[in-house]
Design a protein around this nucleic acid. Structure first.
Lengths: 203, 203
DNA sequence: CGATAAAATGAACAGTGTTCATTTTTCTGG
DNA sequence: CCAGAAAAATGAACACTGTTCATTTTATCG
């Protein structure tokens, strides 16, 4: 049996992801260094490359954890309301809250790019489904005319819109960007969309 | 007089920004290299640092150009319609078209981050105003209840939402992201918002 | 236990942006 | 038009990056 070997390798991977997660959370993705991560994890520099093909794959595993935590936060937010419109509003505020509470880890989800044009592996792409999973049901209630495919497409569009609002604002790309106005703007934005969908149903 | 010196320095800056712009347009921001830029510009490596404090400032000047071109594109889009709702729709489609036609230069606008926590200089932050400049007027017509401050805030929110939809889709962060559905989704999204604003006016 | 295979090690490598002593160019007073 | 002075261009050197690989250490199993 190769139990001890597998155990050690699993332990090493965990320590490396822990270390990378802590570094990203503290200083952001751009400040991540292979030497610091391996030092924090208590292993040699080269050990990183026995556990992961490169540093990008390590970041993907950190992002994997973040997506899981974000998924839980969104699930709780979705459960906080029954009315579809209020559910969407709660999801948006929950997303904003997570981004504010985990600024660097959240930013790493979208700031990380694969080198050259190497594609993100499918297993990780699939994990992004949690971002739209809880949007689909309330959206179906608000826009009953959409079929399954259109519904998922629209849910993605809706997520991307909310994400854009939060990202642009938290990055402070505009002069006088007022972060404290963000919850209100997000609420007004969702209200506008639900009103639009209500009008479409009524017509 | 120091005419020749100033002229040469201005020429050098122009050549460097030209070279950086071409490199980013061809291969993306991440592939930008000081040695390649200076080689393209026909100067020594060190000359870059007599023209710009660092490579980030050079990128800022490239982004400055891109924002100006994007501003023109949006102005043309805004002029293509008179109805406020159609104007917003045209702006969204114009934004999408610019992003598709200039993928790397457009991405550089938002993928570039200052090192550490060095702030973007105000002159460049101010240039981002072109992104919302043409949204304000049609938005004012559609949402007459907003005062000046709320109007600009809402315009920024609206831009950020459209930007998010385009960015997330073009980056292909989801499985089965169908880029060809983007214009339709964007149109449906704007229609939803205008319908929501119409409902708010009617009530 | 001893032979073998696997994994951990960290010095070395190729690459990056940036600096700085040196050379070259430009400016200006006579 | 020409020195002397000032400024700018140069590119080798520097500190740092992620990654590799010959060597050492550790785990496996007959």
């Amino acid at each position: 049996m190769t139990e001890k070997r597998d155990q050690k390798k699993a332990d090493l991977k965990t320590r490396l992801v822990d270390a990378a997660e802590n570094r990203i959370a503290a200083q952001g993705l751009a400040a991540l260094r292979a030497r610091e991560v391996t030092s924090d994890a208590g292993c040699a520099l080269g050990a990183l490359y026995t556990a992961f093909a490169d540093i990008d794959l390590l970041v993907l595993h950190v992002n994997s954890r973040t997506l899981a935590r974000l998924g839980s936060a969104l699930e709780i937010a979705a459960a906080s309301a029954t009315d579809p419109g209020l559910k969407l509003a709660a999801l948006a505020q929950g997303y904003l809250a997570f981004a504010r509470d985990n600024p660097h880890l959240w930013a790493a989800l979208f700031d990380h790019h694969m080198p050259d044009s190497a594609q993100v592996p499918d297993w990780h792409l699939a994990e992004h489904a949690v971002l739209i999973a809880h949007i689909v049901a309330p959206l179906a209630a608000l826009a009953p005319g959409l079929d399954e495919a259109a519904l998922h497409l629209r849910a993605r569009t809706l997520f991307a819109a909310v994400h854009g609002i939060v990202k642009v604002s938290l990055e402070g790309r505009f002069v006088g960007a007022r972060e404290d106005a963000l919850p209100g703007e997000l609420a007004a934005f969702i209200a506008l969309l639900t009103a639009g969908m209500a009008a479409a149903r009524g017509a």
